[in-house]
């Protein structure tokens, strides 16, 4: 300091001022980043919103699994359709299997709701092996051998479930294993949507 007498008070004050300027910037950026991370931690990183919600569901016409019959989505207009993509090789599908069995048995008899499975990228043999072991669905599944229907519905990975209202509009979607609660919630959403 002694070698530089020109370091006046005014100059000191100026360095102080610039310091204050970046101090605020630094603190602001820090706080914003921490809020961002905290908010980021709280969310489900698997959840990806589908642009298909609120849009008419793609009307497929595919062969039924284990039957010489075509299934057309628009045949079920007037009912809420629960469209569940599954495959025998999908590990998470095993987790939700009992939920699908139980709730479809409970809800379908009312005639308001129809479950449809989509057996995607699978073989008939493996699919039946899966159901023989874990229980057959009390509703039909269609065969989506190549996974084209999955692409059409923007499916990221099995299992995914779409809830289509009685006018054929996609009301909600769930990625991952279903639980009874999620299923009930989404059904309500499908009912509410006109």
């Amino acid at each position: 300091m002694t070698t530089h007498p020109q370091t006046t008070k005014a100059q000191k004050a100026e360095t102080q001022k610039t310091v204050a300027w970046w101090q605020f910037a630094l603190i602001g950026v820090m706080i914003m980043m921490f809020i961002l991370f905290a908010a980021g931690l709280g969310r489900d990183s698997k959840f990806i919103p589908s642009p298909l919600i609120g849009k008419p569901a793609y009307d497929f016409n595919l062969k039924q699994l284990g039957a010489e019959k075509q299934i057309k989505l628009s045949d079920y207009k007037g009912k809420i359709v629960v469209l569940n993509f599954w495959a025998s090789w999908c590990v998470t599908c095993r987790e939700e299997h009992h939920v699908l069995l139980e709730s479809s048995k409970a809800v379908q008899p009312s005639g308001k709701v129809q479950f449809i499975g989509v057996n995607s990228k699978d073989t008939d043999k493996a699919a039946f092996g899966f159901m023989d072991k874990r229980g057959h669905f009390p509703y039909p599944s269609v065969i989506d051998r190549q996974g084209r229907l999955a692409l059409e519905y923007g499916v990221y990975g099995m299992p995914e479930t779409f809830f289509i209202n009685k006018n054929g509009v996609i009301a909600a979607k769930h990625i991952g294993a279903l639980t009874h609660k999620i299923l009930a919630d989404k059904l309500k959403q499908a009912e509410a949507l006109q």
């Binding site: 530089h4 100059q11 360095t15 310091v19 101090q23 630094l26």
Partner: peptide
């Protein structure tokens, strides 16, 4: 840094 950083500033 915010509290004491200015103490490090040299004259140049």
């Amino acid at each position: 840094l915010v509290w004491r950083g200015h103490r490090l500033i040299g004259p140049h």
